[in-house]
Computed example of a mutant assay.
Amino acid sequence: MDFDVKTLDGGSDGKITVSDEIFGLEPRQDLVQRVIRWQLSKRQAGTHKTKTRGEINATGKKMYKQKGTGRARHSDRKAPQFRGGGKAFGPVVRSHAHDLPKKVRALGLKHALSAKARDGKVIVLASAETDATKTKALREKLAGLGLANALIVDGAEQNDAFVKAARNIPHLDLLPVAGINVYDILRRDTLVLTKAAVESLEERFK
């Protein structure tokens, strides 16, 4: 599979050939869904918590005598059925993370890249570099490329001026190639890869 390589100014910089094993697969939604679920579950804080009856700050005195009242037999007011009592079977602090095999995660990334390539939503840039840290100038260049909602993936080292100019642009994410992931690829409309990023992905999945 070949991609046209563009410059940040909208010009052409030749073509680049990529592996069909990375960008030419028939996308499987089930694999992509499993990886996204794994990502979001791992990200979830899990700090939700309610108090049990043992954690309520209240007296432990028995409400009334056991027998002779004609009412139900109760101990203290910290029981769940009373106002201000503990919560029965409430959420506790825990991790929502679950395991997913490394091969499935790698395959999910390939299918996410293939899905973008099939939809024609992949743009390859010669480089993501700029001399001046000017957000307005960079936004105009990206608008010229038709990038209103995009993820830009650069090589291992990112251009500092480009990162500073891009961080205030809405609906634009910037990642090094080591941080590329399925969720961020699919949450943006267009995937922009630099030549360095493409070469790193080819080497990674070789």
Score class of each variant (00 low, 15 high):
204 R>Y: 14
189 D>W: 06
52 T>I: 12
168 N>H: 11
34 R>L: 10
86 G>I: 08
76 D>Q: 06
171 H>Q: 13
108 G>N: 08
131 D>T: 08
111 H>L: 07
152 I>F: 08
145 L>E: 03
72 A>T: 03
82 F>E: 02
30 D>G: 12
135 T>Y: 00
103 K>L: 10
144 G>L: 02
96 H>T: 03
9 D>I: 03
7 T>Q: 00
136 K>P: 07
106 A>K: 13
141 K>Y: 00
36 I>N: 00
36 I>V: 15
138 L>T: 00
70 G>H: 01
14 G>D: 07
166 A>S: 13
24 G>E: 07
124 V>R: 09
202 E>W: 04
56 I>Q: 07
84 G>T: 06
164 K>L: 13
171 H>S: 13
187 R>C: 07
119 D>W: 09
129 E>G: 04
31 L>H: 12
55 E>M: 06
134 K>W: 00
152 I>W: 08
194 T>H: 09
169 I>W: 01
158 Q>R: 10
34 R>S: 08
166 A>W: 01
163 V>Y: 10
161 A>N: 13
111 H>F: 12
121 K>C: 10
108 G>V: 08
164 K>S: 12
168 N>E: 09
44 Q>F: 14
63 M>D: 01
12 S>E: 11
18 V>Y: 05
32 V>C: 06
161 A>W: 04
42 K>C: 12
121 K>L: 15
97 A>S: 08
85 G>Q: 07
51 K>P: 14
135 T>I: 00
74 H>F: 14
183 Y>A: 09
170 P>H: 13
50 T>C: 08
163 V>W: 07
153 V>P: 01
